[in-house]
Amino acid sequence: MGKYFVAGLVVVFLIVFFTMVPIGLWVTAKFSGVNISMASLVAMRFRRLSPSKIVNAMIKSHQAGLDISNNNLESHYLSGGDINQVVDALIAAERANIDLSFEQAAAIDLAGRNVFEAVQVSVTPKVINTPVIAAVAKNGIEVKVIAKVTVRANIERLVGGAGEETIIARVGEGIVTTVGSSESHSEVLENPDNISETVLSKGLDSGTAFEILSIDIADVDVGRNVGAELQRDQAEADKNIAQAKAEERRAQAIALEQENRAKVVEAESRIPIAIAKAFEEGNLGIMDYYNMENIKSDTKMRESISGDIGDDIDG
């Protein structure tokens, strides 16, 4: 029984030993020319590092002729960086004769930028296509422009420099300003290169992570007649204002007419009182009253007859 217990302890010890001590990885590093001790590999386990990632990055950099210490790689790994991307960027920069230190590459990586892609763009310029940019010339005609911006990454400004969105926004602003200062859309269509030259001369890459090499106009189209639409909208607005003012005057006239009618009705309501008072004071006799009523009846009869005759004539 004791023999089996000892054998079990030996097996457990060997499993733990080979788990904590990456002998195979140490042998691979030695044969690749990377000088790293077994104690360092074991210490990586206790620091919750991945020895294979560190050693593979060291082997890759050693074979490329770069001298990168395991301490730098461990520090960048613990900071949340991508050590493989940093090593690849340093190798690419070395091949392209670009001055890039490990500290710079690590800072660019930790800033959230793809440092390897940045080195590639620094060697091989990148083309950024702008969306359709609409601008209006002085004659009111809209011009739609699509531009291709060729940029090269600026390694020195990758940390803290603005990205592609800023480049596109500045180029769009430059195109709008240039087209807006043109006398007519025909001038823009005849000389689209003027847009490129004017926009490129504004130094739009200032404070960005890129250097603008060229701005090429890929397409120019004529859009809406914005000036005519604005005039039409203004005329419609003026018409609505005039109609509103006319309606206001009509409402005032109706209100005044109703007010006058009310005054007439009020005055007519006082006539019987005035007649009664005239009778009392002797200013109006009974015959005078009858004559006045006869005149009123005769007037109504004449109005009725003239209305009937008018209807017959219309018929």
Rank of each mutant, 00 (worst) to 15 (best):
D205A: 14
M44S: 03
S79A: 10
E236W: 10
S52T: 12
N283H: 13
R45S: 15
Q252P: 02
H62A: 09
G140W: 05
A147K: 02
V27F: 12
Q231W: 14
G227H: 00
F17W: 11
N294G: 13
L189M: 15
V10N: 06
N225I: 04
I15D: 05
V265T: 12
L9P: 01
G161S: 08
D67P: 01
Q252I: 08
N129V: 07
L9F: 08
N72A: 14
S297F: 09
T19H: 15
S182C: 11
D109R: 03
G65C: 12
F102Y: 06
D109G: 05
E165Q: 12
D298L: 08
S269A: 10
I23N: 02
E183I: 11
I23K: 01
S122R: 02
A64G: 08
H62V: 01
M20L: 14
R249S: 07
E164P: 01
A111F: 07
K148E: 05
A111C: 07
I215L: 05
F46Q: 09
I168D: 01
I295F: 07
S297R: 10
T198V: 09
W26C: 00
A134N: 13
R232P: 01
E229L: 09
E187Q: 15
N71H: 13
V16Y: 02
P125V: 10
V119C: 03
Y77M: 05
G112H: 00
I59K: 03
A267S: 15
I23L: 13
V42D: 06
A43W: 08
F116D: 02
E190R: 10
G2I: 09
I141S: 07
T130P: 00
G163E: 04
Q243N: 10
V136Y: 12
T166V: 15
S306H: 08
V6F: 06
A92M: 07
G161E: 07
V143D: 02
V226S: 14
S214N: 13
K296Y: 10
V87N: 04
T177P: 00
S37P: 02
H76E: 04
T150W: 00
L200V: 06
G81Y: 00
I59M: 10
K144A: 04
N114D: 15
R157E: 14
K277W: 07
N114L: 03
M292G: 11
A118N: 04
R261G: 11
N191Q: 14
D288R: 07
E236C: 06
N35W: 10
I141C: 04
Y4W: 10
E247I: 04
V119E: 02
N71G: 10
I146C: 03
D216K: 05
D219A: 10
K300Q: 15
I309E: 13
E280V: 04
V159M: 02
L66E: 05
I98K: 03
N35L: 09
D298I: 03
T178A: 15
Y290Q: 12
L213A: 01
G207W: 13
